[in-house]
Amino acid sequence: MERLLQVENLVTQYKTAEGMFSAVQGISFTVEKGETLCIVGESGSGKSATALSIMGLLPANGKITEGSIRLKKDELVGKTEEQLQRIRGNEISMIFQEPMTALNPVFTIGFQIREPLTIHRKMSKKEATLVSIELLEKVGIPNPKEKLKQFPHELSGGMRQRVMIAIALACEPSLLIADEPTTALDVTIQSQILDLIDDLKEQMGMGVVFVTHDMGVVAEIADQVMVMYAGEVVEMGDVYSIFNNPKDPYTKGLLAAVPNVDDDSKNWLQGVNIHGESTASS
């Protein structure tokens, strides 16, 4: 396999009223071509901060203070905004949790899918429209021609997420970052979207970084799993070894806390032993 993404000793800090706060504390991992890496953890574990760091989309008070992120041979840390723009949406794409906030409500679906094609691929409007229709078909949207003229609010949640995926895939990126893309969706729609991402990954040979808190989703989609807690990696391995033979107590606790629908026993709750509730960050 080919190495696609190499993150080394990444430290991401946020500036807060009480000083610098490290959301990601020196983590390293790699993603191969055609591989799905799932980053799991509870809220505040730094999984989204990791995704945003790779994407170069940290908020104004966030900063990568140490480490390197290499896409193929290209170092991303320290690139200017202009250089990053050429990579974002082209080489690396991202799908977000809430497609309604990620789509612009005042532009049509068609406009928003054409945008990356006209910018990165320098296509004419006509060419871009043709490709857009193909893309919408690929992500399983019925009547793609009419959908191009519709606005985001006219579509259901599942359809919006498909549109987001179509936009993300427009320029055939080599790396797709998905941050909780199915968390806001119902289970029947979630399983459609997960299958879609998995199929497209296979077809296009992308690498996928999939951020989620749902161990069920991880089991379904991951090749490699990285468990994060408080900004650090507590365990990393392939999906089978993480689920069948977890080493770290936190991973064990996390797995035990997931209610399994197939499980008969009523003692799921007894198995849960992660102690101490995190208090509001102060």
Partner: peptide, 19 residues
């Protein structure tokens, strides 16, 4: 459709079409 925390069982869902 519920994702089970058991790796390797994917792709045997009963698929519901549409929304």
């Amino acid at each position: 459709a519920i994702p089970r925390p058991v790796p390797g069982r994917k792709k045997n869902h009963i698929k519901l079409e549409g929304d």
